[in-house]
Amino acid sequence: MIEINNITFEYNGLKAIDNISIKIEKGESIAIIGPNGSGKSTFLKILNALIFPSSGDYIFNGEKITPSSMNNQIFSKKFHKKIGFVFQNSDSQLFCSSVYDEIAFGPRQMGLSEIDVKRRCEDCLRLLNIEDLKDRVPFNLSGGEKKRVAIACVLSSNPEVIVLDEPMNGLDPRTKRFFRELLIKLNQSGKTVICATHDFEYVKDVFKRAIVFSKNHRIIRDDHYDKVINDSVFLFENNII
């Protein structure tokens, strides 16, 4: 489904990703692991076509993702519909004037009838347990509440691939457990889950595969999640634990 060949990315000459190649199949659940500054967020941004690699190819569902192909609106909308991104900083992800509008944004754009939109929104509100927040203004919610809203509004447009950038940051243990269940549920329902994370305790049994980035921005391991997580010598050597 996702194929990445020899991608390199630089911010003004500063390498953030150095020649990586990955293949991701539909329905996988993948953890992206690596020390701070190793390029995880950058990689996720490339997956979402927010930035484009300076060399190498990104192929999604057999189609090359390039600045010019993303210039085609229909294509780019179809692409963005299929892949949802939960930002590291959910503050900047919320821009509507109420939580309900925020969640309804995607479905409304898809041209669903207002009844369907309502159904989706209510399902999402229930799923993330934020029914009480429905009429609040997003920007003065607490951090954890914002995260829930951000996830709800990605889910409401029902993407096939869900990309999350450190979703567990700053959440209380109960919410973390809740997200763990949610990720498992989503993956079981056939969604591809790609998630950058540092929280190994709370994501037990969520992921089947782990991709490890090193501090010099390369992939140093791509293996079963459990094998990687139990290899404490490897993790210690690479500043991950």
């Binding site: 927010l50 949802g84 991104f85 900047s92 754009q109 898809m110 041209g111």
Partner: peptide, 18 residues
């Protein structure tokens, strides 16, 4: 930086007719 990210978020979620 923040408004850039917000614009990106808007773009990512603009999947149809607005």
């Amino acid at each position: 930086n923040i408004s850039f990210e917000t614009l990106c978020a808007l773009k990512l979620r603009s999947i149809g007719k607005n």
